[in-house]
């Protein structure tokens, strides 16, 4: 019985560590119902620091703070998917856009919804 309690303690510590690791990996989300971040393939040492959704004047705006943890310059492609309150994707696919990051640089990528129906967004990033 005592052994089981010890196991439980280990498990809860492990669970807490896993929670911390996953939080630091995905970054913080502010104001986004889901605010998902999707890595399309391996993008290397890129960290999503924070995702913020700011509805203003009826239009949803998303700020994604990304950091290049690599020691080399990185050029990445990104785009947003926009969803209405029922989770249906809005409009056509956005074009992939490029972002250039110097080593250790932190940059904020801004996205604006295509119309006032958008209540949630997904951020996609790839090499």
């Amino acid at each position: 019985m005592r052994f089981r309690f010890k196991q439980l303690r280990y498990l809860s510590v492990l669970g807490f560590l896993f929670f911390l690791v996953s939080c630091s990996f995905m970054g913080k989300k502010n104001g986004c119902p889901n605010g998902d971040v999707v890595f399309v393939g391996d993008i290397g040492d890129i960290e999503i620091v924070e995702v913020s959704c700011i509805p203003k004047d009826g239009i949803l705006r998303v700020l994604v703070e990304i950091k290049n943890d690599d020691s080399k310059d990185r050029s990445l492609a990104y785009r947003f998917d926009w969803f209405d309150e029922e989770g249906v994707v809005l409009g056509r696919d956005e074009a992939w856009k490029t972002v250039y990051l110097y080593p250790k640089e932190v940059k904020t990528i801004r996205g604006t919804a295509p119309n006032w129906l958008a209540t949630d967004a997904k951020f996609l990033i790839k090499k």
């Binding site: 203003k56 004047d57 009826g58 239009i59 705006r61 956005e94 074009a95 992939w96 856009k97 490029t98 996205g111 604006t112 919804a113 295509p114 119309n115």
Partner: peptide
């Protein structure tokens, strides 16, 4: 095409949040 799409998208979204249309 990437340049065209980037320009069109950025400009449209900028206008969407301007006082002119809000």
């Amino acid at each position: 095409s990437t340049d065209l799409q980037k320009i069109a998208e950025e400009m449209t979204r900028s206008m969407l949040v301007s006082q002119l249309v809000v």
